[in-house]
Each structure stands twice: as C-alpha cells, then as structure tokens.
Design a protein around this nucleic acid. Structure first.
Lengths: 227, 227
DNA sequence: GTCTATAGTCGGATAGAC
DNA sequence: GTCTATCCGACTATAGAC
C-alpha cells in the first residue's frame, strides 16, 4: 500500500522555492539549478511550467501579490467601511496603529512573509516588469489607506503633505528590513524575536503619533508656521 | 605637437565606471565587459589592475568610503569639538538639522554621491565582504554622532532608545532612495530637483524635531508613561 | 509529466604578442 | 601597460526518450 504523495505539486513547489531563493539572492544571482534543487524538481520543470526563469519569477511575484492582498483585505475593508460611515480622529488613530504594527510584523516577524518584503525591496531599487504587477495591488492600496487615515486624524487637506507623511511612516518600518545589516550591528538584533518586534512597534507607533500631533497642530498655526 | 592625455589613468577610470555601473546593476548583473566599455579600457585591464571583478568592486567600495569620510569629516569633527566643550540642547538641534539635511542631499541630490547610496543600500540588503569595509568608516560614525546629539537634545540616557531613534531618522531618509520607485509613482518625483530636495528636507527635519520633543517630554512623565 | 543529454550562449580570466 | 585571441566553466533552454 503506497502512501499518497501529499506534497504540493511541482509547479507549486517551484513557486515556494522561488520566494525563498529570489529573496535571498535576487533575480540575477539566482540560477535555475538552485531553484530546481530547492523545489526538488527536475531542471526542465522550470521551462516546462513557466517557459523561462523570468516566467517563474513573475509567477512568484503574482503569488506574493495574492497572499499580501488577502492579508490586507480585512484591514483595508474595515477602513473603507468606516470612511463611508464617517471616521473619527480617534478611530483613525487606532486603525493607523494597527496598520503600522501589522507592517512591522509582516516585514520583520512572520517567517512566511519576510522574504516577500525582501523581494519587494529589491524591486523598488531596480524595478522590472514585476513591479507593475505588485505596485497597484499592494503598495498603492497601503499608501492610499494611510493617506486617508492621516487626513482624518490631522485635518490636513493637502494630499501631498499626507502622502509625504505616509512615506515617512513606511520609511521608519523599511529601515528595519532594508538596513538590517546595520540594525544588526548597532542593536545586536539578529533574528527579530517577539520582544524585539514589540520594541520596534512601540518606537514606530509612538513617533508616528508625535508626527500626527505635529501635523494637526501645524494646521492651527497662522500660515502654517510654528510659533 | 600632441596634446597630453589628461584623462584619469585606466585604473582610476575603472573605479569611476564601477561606481556608476555597480550602483545601477548590482555586483552580479554587472559584467566585466560593461565596466571596460564604460571606462574605455581593454577588458584585460580589470584582472591586470584589480586581479578580478571582485577586486575592482572592493576598490570601488574603498573609494566610496574615502570620499564619504572626507565629506563627513567637517560635520563629525564639529560635533566632536562641541561635545568636549559642552553641548547645549539648542546647539545639538542645529547640528542634527544640518546632519539630516546633508544626508538627504547626499542620498538624493548630489549626482556624484547618489550612486554611493545605491551601492551601500545593496550591501545592506545582502552584505558581502565589502560591508565590513564601509560600515565602520561611514555608517558607524554617522550613527554614533546622531546618538550623541539625540542624547544631548532629549536628556535620554538609555543608549538603546537613542539608537532606535537614530535608526528611525535614517529610515525616513532611506525611503526616498530605497523606495524611489514608489515615491516616484506616488508623488510624481522623477529626478529629485532642488525644490523637491528642500521639500523632503523640511518634512524630515520637522518630524525629527517632533520626535525629539516627544522623547524629551517622555523623560519627565512618571515611569515614562504618557499621561 | 518527468527524465537525460546536449545545444548554444555568455562571462571571467589567462596567455602571450607588441 | 595595453592589446588580441582564446580557454573554460556555468548558465538557460531545448530535444526527445520514457
């Protein structure tokens, strides 16, 4: 009696292997042999299922966009719903806290999603065709949500100001992934374990609140100039 | 009468070409042929002067560390000097403003140094032997200076808190280089021209001041808890 | 669908003339 | 120091058996 093979099929295994290996090495430094080895498939499975190494890479990007979209959906639809029914500054603050905490967890904590952020960061630095695939489905929607929350909290109506602030928030999260080598040496953080994640979340959220207070206060200064 | 050849010699031309090409493509995607073409030298000049492609890369990194060190020297020695003679919170604030403004200019504005930050960012994401060469000469010193200033401004004595805040500052600058593709689509900034640099500097510095006010105020709350 | 074998290409490094 | 020519290894993709 043979036990049925419950492993994901070759196609799926290649995508999962691609997430890890492309994240670690980037597109160019990744060879089809690494991918085939990791996925435990024959080398020819790559052109067979995906036509080429680049085809596999695009499939990996699409997989990432799918998973992250699903991950974001509850958060985004909650904001959408509250925005329609009217969003108090307090409620918006709570949502922004949640959003920032989730971003830190996704980028630094969850071992399943950490490679996603590495791949996305690489795409940011040197965008390929894959960037067009993931930008509207992930980055665009996160930024739009943040901008809406920032506006609701501070009363700032200049969309450019809200966009700038949203990007600064992203930057504060980003540094813990994109600058990992430095964070590592400076704070002695290797993994990021649960305590360290909490410490980072606390630092980012408290500064975010301070920045929002600043923006809200500025709206009330004559001509937007600090007294 | 022949005009003398005033071009930098082959070795120097290779390093300058390396800065541009490695920044644009990363180590792996850069071929020795690209480098030789850009530098207008024969392919064999690379192994001749640098033993290998990697040798050239390390020479490029050293060049970057040299130039950035020289660039930082005035700022760092001013801080050093003031720190010894006693640094008022107000003076420290001024220095931190200068430091942040300079970082933005170096990372986004100066066409000579923009490729440096791209190479450093790539090293952050996937550190090679080159990272050890540049970390102590550049990142370490910037962070140490920032930490000192943050301590002087806020009265915070917990060094880890100061380090965290310094990293958050770096992150806010970083996002405009590492997240350029997104900034581009979101704010329609292509180049970064003079006005845009000023806008970014203003946004970062004002939020930095708000974060420092927050840290200073927290020191006076009972148990460090916001009332 | 999965395998082996191999074609075809490219990149890094070397040899040796000048 | 600079050039041409070339080697050798590694890579992606294909052909075709099973």
């Amino acid at each position: 009696m043979n036990t049925p093979d419950t492993r994901p099929d070759a196609r799926q295994r290649l995508i999962l292997a691609g997430v890890e290996i492309f994240a670690e090495n980037g597109f160019n430094a990744t060879t089809t042999r690494m991918l085939a080895d990791k996925a435990q498939v024959n080398l020819s499975a790559i052109p067979y299922y995906f036509r080429s190494k680049e085809g596999l890479y695009l499939a990996v990007i699409e997989h990432i966009a799918d998973v992250l979209s699903a991950h974001l959906e509850p958060f985004l639809s909650k904001i959408q719903h509250l925005a329609e029914t009217g969003l108090s500054p307090e409620a918006a603050r709570g949502l922004l806290r949640d959003g920032l905490a989730t971003m830190v967890a996704v980028m630094c904590g969850d071992p399943g999603t950490v490679p996603f952020s590495q791949i996305i960061l690489r795409e940011q630095m040197a965008p390929s065709a894959a960037f067009d695939l993931i930008y509207p489905r992930v980055m665009e929607r996160i930024l739009t949500a943040f901008v809406m929350l920032i506006g609701a909290i501070t009363g700032e109506t200049d969309e450019r100001q809200c966009n700038l602030q949203a990007l600064l928030f992203i930057g504060q999260v980003l540094v813990f992934r994109g600058g990992r080598a430095t964070v590592n040496r400076r704070l002695g953080m290797t993994g990021y374990n649960t305590d360290e994640i909490a410490e980072i979340q606390e630092a980012i959220i408290s500064r975010a609140m301070a920045a929002l207070d600043f923006m809200a206060a500025r709206k009330t200064w004559p001509g937007g100039v600090r007294p």
